[in-house]
Design a protein around this nucleic acid. Structure first.
Lengths: 196, 196
DNA sequence: GCATGTGAAGGAATTCACAGCA
DNA sequence: TGCTGTGAATTCCTTCACATGC
């Protein structure tokens, strides 16, 4: 569904009022019947013979994904990757915002990056009262688990981690891991004449 | 399999000579029988009653993933994310290396980042003869498709893209997309009392 | 005894084909 | 006619249970 949201937002921004499953499928590199099947689980979203109204589709998917209210995230690790994330403008389209940043390095504390002031990681517990419910982990992999534990203590219940380690958390906390090196390592398999 | 490689490398670096499917599963947050089933497709990798020899396991998986030889990649887009990638040291464990970087911005050309000199994007075609077969796309999303086409022309057959767009390529080119904002947007769904 | 390898069962996701409505 | 919604068929992936070998 997040992918469908992305595609619908994009086509809507190109001025489409209605889109067919065919059009969305072409745009995303998928098949129409898969999209229709997935949409069908959430009741009647489209008009037969016409397609899906982009406006209502966006708002329905946002509601399903609980993106109908703005969400705030905290970032830990203001290194190169962390800074890039703080200055990245792509979160806004989903109503997401990084509103706090922490680092272990005293030299970075106080710095403003992407409009956010870097705080010392010792104060991580203070995020508890700030209406933040997601954490972004951009720390060295050795400290990833430790910082994740601190985020758990601070009441965070969703983590996006860039560390190539499995983060152990109670089941109530959702962890999504992006392992960039591992993703790049998947490419060579497809390089030469592979079947399929 | 890339995930198994990561886990095995990690446990090996901790001094493990043999690992059981149970141990690897615990480490990665998976189940032992899934790992055994997946390994079984590639012939007898383990010793019954003992486990898997980490050394041979690593080399077998590397061979399967075609990571048994070092692979070279080109990066396009030396902005914040691109620079972070150039300076990231995590690719080496898989024998991957970024050996060239390109940017559209003349001011960046000539700069050294992470030991790589930034070249002007107009010269992208020159990668053809340099033993490079993967491209990393860290450009603004509007230019992603255009640059991907240029990479195709330059003989690249695998692309890791950070642009939140579907990249259209001939079937012989493998494209892996990392959409950071979309991944973060998946979290809110899990935030409150969801079943499962 | 211990841990792998694997046929069989079970479940989930995808694809198909078409009925139903604008 | 055009495009959605959906049961049925299919394919794929996961889980189980246990025979096999160190």
């Amino acid at each position: 569904m997040p992918l469908y949201l992305r595609g619908t937002l994009e086509l809507a921004s190109q001025g489409a009022d209605f889109i067919s499953s065919q059009r969305l499928a072409d745009h995303l590199g998928l098949t129409p019947w898969l999209i229709r099947k997935d949409f069908s689980y959430f009741g009647d979203l489209g008009k037969r013979g016409v397609g899906y109204d982009t406006r209502t589709l966006v708002s329905r998917i946002k509601k399903i994904l609980r993106l109908n209210v703005d969400r705030r995230a905290v970032l830990v690790g203001a290194g190169r990757l962390g800074s890039a994330l703080l200055e990245y403008g792509g979160f806004g389209r989903y109503g997401l915002q990084i509103v706090a940043a922490f680092d272990r390095d005293g030299a970075k504390v106080g710095e403003m990056i992407g409009g956010v002031r870097v705080e010392h990681v010792n104060g991580l517990a203070t995020v508890a009262g700030r209406g933040i419910d997601m954490g972004i982990l951009a720390v060295p992999e050795e400290s990833a688990q430790e910082i994740a534990d601190a985020l758990l203590m601070a009441g965070i219940r969703g983590i996006l981690s860039f560390s190539p380690r499995h983060i152990a958390m109670p089941k109530r906390v959702k962890v999504i891991t992006i392992d960039i090196a591992m993703d790049l390592a998947r490419l060579p398999y497809y390089l030469s004449g592979n079947r399929r």
